[in-house]
Structures are given as structure tokens and as C-alpha cells.
Simulated assay, not measured.
Amino acid sequence: MSVVPQEHQNTAVLVLEDGRVCTGTTYGARGTALGEAVFCTGMTGYQETLTDPSYHGQIVVQTAPQIGNTGWNGEDDESSGIQVAGYAVRDPSATPSNWRSTGSLEQALVRQGVVGIAGIDTRALVRHLRERGAMRAGVFSGDALAGTDELTQRVRASPRMAGADLYGAVTTREPYVVPAVGQRRFRVAALDVGIKFNTPRMMAERGIETHVLPADCPVEAIEELRPDGVFLANGPGDPATADKPVALTEQVLERGLPLFGICFGNQILARALGRGTYKMRYGHRGINIPVIEHATGRVAITSQNHGFAVLGEAGEEFDTPFGRARITHTCPNDGCVEGLALTSGRAFSVQYHPEAAAGPHDAATLFDRFAELMGQTR
């Protein structure tokens, strides 16, 4: 094991696969973090970002310069723990200040073994990623420090995000139930390919009992529940690898069950309907991204986290084995597909996060739409 000189005890470096190096200070655990470098533009919600399973396998760069002001608490996690591979910030708060805080952000990173870096020019780094695209990266500190050439080779030897099969790493191992608040109106089977805690909460508030199922569950497990509807969750990785969830979705569509998907679930439904997907240059990750609903012209400001998207054009209609479908939503910034649906109304999905933790609540009514669909079908 190499011995780190005293003057480098607090040094950390972030190395991109194209050879760019950012030198800063350690933040969180010391060691090695390898993953895809991406940036999140959210000014708030760093705890929800860090615990979002959709960020599994990624090194998140925060564009907001000051991070950690409100500390860490025991209520805002969106999963069982921090999901990011690594973390990069500019100016971490030394002392958190919030009545809900139970500790600092850095303490949470150390406790959960997440390697981070602070004190770098995140604005310059984000501009580089916008120009060159999201790419493989590594954060190194402590005994993991070495020469630039060696660290760059470690990064280039790490897996790419394109072709990455990650949803199995974040799915639940055993089914569990989130009960409805008050009287139960509907029962939903939710396929967990990376579900966030706030999604079942949002459904519970609408009288929906949610049965969260592992990603590899057979259709018989859904049929046994006799659900009123099926939900496809968000999640990480390349949707081109999600053959089992896609096959399960096709079986659900064959049975005519009402279906609602978000984020990774949007891509799974798209594949089940015969559409392809592609890797975006640097993706959508933030809480202020506009989306147009083409049927109404309504624009919603949404929370998003995705680096892959569905092939299609605004308003496009196409045939599927389950009936006619159309592209229902797009992003005005880049034309990215943000939603699709069967024209029968029996299945629909969006690329963004209506549970919006953290983020705007413009799209929360999609859960009401799902409830209405289940009521009409029943």
C-alpha cells in the first residue's frame, strides 16, 4: 500500500477519461470512485439527489456553488442510502443550519463510504461536460492517489454507461407494501427498477395501496395481486439492457391492465411498444426543465434525471402490437421525447418525475390521472 505524503493527506483529484484533471480537497470518504460524470442543476434537494437510485453508477457534479447548508436528516432519503458513485462540489458548508438536520452532509458521505471532492471549479467542469458530453470519470484521494497517467488509465478501464445493466443493483429483493392513506381505493403493482420512496407516498395520498415488486418478478406475481393498475418506476442504466422488464410490460399490455410509467419506466414502455432508445449527450438532470403536453399546449416545469431518451418526434403517431400510440410530451429545449401513450388511454408514461422530490409540483396531477384511469377501467 502506498503512503501518502503529509502535504497530500487532504488532496483529492477528479480525472475525466479525456485526460482533464481537477484538483481539490477530500470531501466525504477517501479512496476511489469510478462512474460516469454528470451534472445536476438543482439549487436545492441534494439529499434527494444523492439517494435517488437513478444516479446509481454516476459521479454527480453539483452546479450550485454552495452545498450542504441544511445538513442531512432522517426523513428526506429517496432510497435505503446514498446511490451515487462519487460526488463533486465547489464550496461545501462547514456548519449545517436547519432545525431538521441530524448531521452534516460530509458525515453522511463518510458514514456511507462515498468518495467526494470539494473546492474545484464546478462551473468550468460543467461547461466541459456540456461541450464534450457526459463521460467516464474517477475521484481519487488518500492511498488511491497516483500519477495522472495511471489514474486516467483506471478511468478508461471502467465500464461505460452505454450498455450498463444497473437496475438489478437497486431493485428490492423482497416485495413490500405501502398502504393507502385512509380508505383503500385501488391496488397497484409497482415494478421496482429503482423506485423513489416518495412515489408510493404520492399514491398513498390518493387512496392507492402500492405493492412494490422486484424487477425480475413474473407476470403471475402481478396477476396474483389482482391489481387495478401497474406502475413502472424510474431507475438507472441503459434501457436497452432492460429486456426482462420490457417483456413483463408486454405481458401487462396484453392483459389490458392500466399502466403508468415514469423516467426509466417511460423507456421500458417505449421499448415494449417497439420504439428504440439512445444515449443523450449530457442528459437532463435538474428541477427546472420545461415540458410541453402537445394535446393541451400546457407547459410544466419538471424534475428530471435521465441520460437516455426515446426515439421520436413531437406529436408523432405509430402502430404497436397493442394499438395505436403517440408521442404526447417533448422538451422545448432540445425536442427530447418526454412522454408517450396508447391512444386508447390504457397506458401512458412520462420521462420526468411527477413525485418531484425535490422539485416543482406541476406534474403531480399525473397520479390523479392514473387513479382516474383505474376507476374507469374497473
Results as ranks from 00 to 15, higher is better:
residue 204 A to G: 13
residue 282 Y to L: 03
residue 166 L to S: 05
residue 190 A to I: 07
residue 271 R to Y: 02
residue 264 F to S: 03
residue 204 A to Y: 05
residue 241 T to A: 09
residue 216 D to P: 03
residue 228 D to G: 15
residue 273 L to E: 05
residue 283 G to K: 04
residue 207 G to T: 03
residue 171 T to F: 04
residue 244 K to C: 07
residue 160 R to N: 13
residue 159 P to A: 10
residue 173 R to F: 06
residue 244 K to G: 12
residue 191 L to R: 01
residue 201 R to Y: 13
residue 166 L to D: 10
residue 160 R to W: 12
residue 161 M to H: 12
residue 234 N to G: 11
residue 251 Q to H: 08
residue 214 P to A: 07
residue 219 V to E: 13
residue 255 R to G: 07
residue 276 G to D: 05
residue 170 V to M: 08
residue 155 V to C: 09
residue 197 F to I: 05
residue 159 P to D: 08
residue 203 M to G: 05
residue 266 N to Q: 14
residue 284 H to F: 13
residue 183 Q to C: 06
residue 262 I to A: 06
residue 251 Q to K: 12
residue 231 F to S: 08
residue 231 F to V: 10
residue 193 V to P: 00
residue 269 L to W: 03
residue 235 G to P: 05
residue 244 K to P: 02
residue 263 C to I: 02
residue 176 Y to A: 04
residue 165 D to L: 07
residue 167 Y to Q: 04
residue 165 D to Y: 11
residue 175 P to R: 03
residue 190 A to Y: 06
residue 234 N to I: 08
residue 264 F to T: 02
residue 216 D to T: 14
residue 271 R to I: 01
residue 286 G to L: 07
residue 240 A to E: 10
residue 288 N to K: 12
residue 272 A to K: 01
residue 203 M to L: 15
residue 194 G to V: 03
residue 159 P to M: 08
residue 205 E to L: 11
residue 267 Q to I: 06
residue 168 G to H: 15
residue 263 C to R: 00
residue 258 P to M: 01
residue 189 A to F: 08
residue 194 G to L: 05
residue 236 P to T: 05
residue 245 P to W: 02
residue 210 T to N: 03
residue 253 L to R: 00
residue 219 V to T: 13
residue 181 V to F: 12
residue 287 I to G: 12
residue 217 C to V: 15
residue 258 P to G: 06
residue 264 F to C: 02
